[in-house]
Amino acid sequence: MKNYSVASQRAWIIRNAMTLLTLATVALYAIFIQWVWGWATVLALWKSAGLGSAFLALAALLGTYVLRTWRIYDYFPTETGGRFGTLLRLTQVHNLLNIMLPFRSGEASFPLLMKREFDLSLARSTAALFVMRLFDLHALLAAAGIGLVLQHHSSWAWALWFGFLVLPVAGFVLRGIGIRFAARVLPAKAERLLAEVEAGLPVDAAAFARAWGATLINWFTKIAVLAWVLGLLGGVSMAPGFGGALGGELSSVLPVHAPAGVGTYPAGISAGAVAFGAAASGAAFEDLAQAAVNTHLLVIVSSLIGTALSLFAARGKG
């Protein structure tokens, strides 16, 4: 009887592993925020700007999380069909782990979670994640590039920016050449792995266009929101705001990226804003530094709230 009870408990834990992981992540993150900043401080920082602005920015960031999930949902329609809520929860847990762990080491959770929840092979989900991260990096740089273009106000700057914007199209068109080259140089034992990698690429031009379009909308929205927040809280103009948003996001991929980006993310924002024309000293820089901390808090609180809400989206599916 005792063995049956233990086995039943184990079965329940296995069935609800994703929910338990989500709850644990949310709880630990909430405790972490209280320990480093204090929830009272988080709310107080936004009172001067207005809670309405905070809620608007928060809603926009939450919308980007839904769009990210849709991109994966559309990428694997057969495997994830009918389980958008579960995928949303998986995406949010993956996002929180990425924020908390240094040097994007949380990325390793994505293929493991996709295997656990949707029985997707590790090779295929890893290949798809790699492609999506290339999309993300390109879109992030393209979004921030708007700040540079706005500084120059010239047709050649817009032409260079547009040329960079459409680079992924060339990569998709030439993908067959890359796959064939890899097949020639890799040993025969790698054929199966290469097939999984190829399966992780967009299946056709329409799938590519949807994934690329969703990525551009996602990052242009996030960078615009963060730039707006930096302008609202730090008084910086549009170009430094875009530069600060880019600097903060790029800081998260550095080897020295601290857990939850404490210190490194705001430093990245300040460095990016200064590189795009913000004041590098004096009272204006002090305002920028404080705004960078507040913007960072907005990003991590939105991730926490998004993960908590995803529990309700996936209720009964898990």
Rank of each mutant, 00 (worst) to 15 (best):
P266V: 08
V93N: 09
A159D: 01
K2V: 14
T215R: 09
I14L: 11
G82T: 06
G231C: 00
G243H: 11
V26M: 04
L140F: 10
A292M: 02
L150T: 03
K317M: 13
G163E: 06
F172E: 06
L67G: 03
F172S: 02
F162P: 01
L28T: 12
A283R: 14
L160Y: 06
A188L: 09
S109N: 02
W161G: 02
L137Q: 05
L58N: 09
D136A: 01
I179V: 14
A40I: 04
K47Q: 13
L167D: 08
G241W: 07
N218E: 12
S8C: 13
A195G: 14
G282I: 01
L254N: 10
Y65R: 11
L140N: 04
A214F: 10
A108G: 10
V225K: 00
L254Y: 11
V225A: 01
A278D: 04
G277T: 03
S105P: 07
K2N: 14
A245T: 07
F118N: 08
F130S: 15
T69V: 03
K317N: 13
A7M: 15
A199T: 03
E249V: 12
Q290H: 10
T78D: 14
Y65A: 10
V262L: 15
T25A: 11
A199S: 08
V274W: 08
A57W: 12
L45H: 08
L134K: 06
A144N: 11
A183I: 03
A17L: 13
L56T: 13
V293W: 12
S8P: 03
L230F: 02
D119L: 12
L311I: 08
R15D: 15
I99C: 14
T91C: 11
V173D: 02
L304C: 13
T126W: 00
L194T: 04
S154I: 04
R83P: 09
L87P: 04
P168K: 03
L62V: 03
P266A: 07
L134N: 09
L122V: 15
G81N: 10
S251C: 05
T86W: 01
G50C: 11
S237V: 03
R180M: 14
A170D: 02
F55S: 15
N16I: 02
K115S: 09
K222C: 12
G147W: 00
F32I: 03
P202T: 08
V42M: 04
L51H: 07
L43D: 06
G316P: 04
L246W: 05
Q34S: 09
H153Y: 13
L101A: 13
V229M: 03
L112Q: 04
G277H: 07
A40E: 12
L62S: 04
A313M: 12
E79W: 01
P266I: 06
I33W: 00
